[in-house]
Design a protein around this nucleic acid. Sequence first.
DNA 1: AACGTTCTTGACCGAATGGTCAAGTCACCG
DNA 2: CGGTGACTTGACCATTCGGTCAAGAACGTT
Lengths: 195, 195
Amino acid sequence: MRRKLTQRGKDRRRQLMDHAAALFAERGYHPTSVADIVETLGVGKGVFYWYFPSKEELLSEILRESQQDLRRRQQQAIGDEPNPVVRIELGIRATIEWFLEHRKNFTLFQFAATDERFAPVLRRNHDVAIADAARHIKEAIVEGLIADQDPEVLAEAIVGACNQLTLTYVFDRNEPVDRTAEAAVSFCLHGIVGK
Amino acid sequence: MRRKLTQRGKDRRRQLMDHAAALFAERGYHPTSVADIVETLGVGKGVFYWYFPSKEELLSEILRESQQDLRRRQQQAIGDEPNPVVRIELGIRATIEWFLEHRKNFTLFQFAATDERFAPVLRRNHDVAIADAARHIKEAIVEGLIADQDPEVLAEAIVGACNQLTLTYVFDRNEPVDRTAEAAVSFCLHGIVGK
DNA sequence: AACGTTCTTGACCGAATGGTCAAGTCACCG
DNA sequence: CGGTGACTTGACCATTCGGTCAAGAACGTT
């Protein structure tokens, strides 16, 4: 296990994380062996264990880092927009765009949710994201912009709908992000009945 | 590999499938070994390979069978309801109820979607389910019950929102199905803006 | 150039894993 | 009762896995 990292070390670490994340997303976590990771990178096995204590910890770190990055992107997109409904809309768009640029993380998150060793890592962040969205919704209710419903339930539903649309249209069918985001926002705001 | 099955054989097969499904859902597919399955059942390893050609094929069969069962339940719930919007509502309720009774399948489906060997099995059925829902939506549009939007997009969004709500409220928090179904239907019909 | 630290190598290890199979056991039928 | 085919056993096998480590290369500092 490493102690201090030089620039060279930091680069290797990055390289390993990116490469492993790609392999995990492509072939799955379990079917991808540590040997696979280092071989396709052309380095010895010791390199892996110099930077990471275990294969498990590597995925956990990948997950933590990705989630942090997504959250940063969402907050940045929302900025200081005063209208809470617009904030939700901006958040949805930012999320879909982020997943387009980091599509490998989508599969990774989905898998991690099914493994009891990684689910807790996701869980914490998911709860924060939901609480965040729920806050905006609550504010919108107070301002009389939307009907009075459980904000947390709405937040979960929004996340679910957006994820499914992203998966199907952005990943499987390569539809443009804008159209998908538009559909997601429209559905989340007005449901199938429409305005 | 088996040829013909007596009643005794059919029972064993059922037992193996149910038991394996439970273990897969609990510990994950890869971390559950064939040895685990047969040991906790108190039988020899040969029994497994008498009924299934491989561990992979077993999961595929579990998936196929579950999906078939879910679909049957949905169609039965919808019956001959004339109003397409009500049909959608009935479908949502039936789905959430089915997952409550077969919660292990939820995790199984989620995992299968992340593994390229099992994704195709899910995919085919998902497409059918979406096409089904889209048909009802289209009919509702024609009858002027809902606004004119892409039926398939709406169908995907509905599935996503319902899955997320089921996962969070029915599984994680043991909320009653009715309340969750109510929330899901309300969200899908009217979004966050509300009626 | 010499030295300590960071980084890299790849053979090696014990512990699984999925899958096989020769040898039996069991249930049913004539 | 004897025989036939459906089932069961569990030792066994080749392979792979995550992880270790002694040895050495590369690098930064003085």
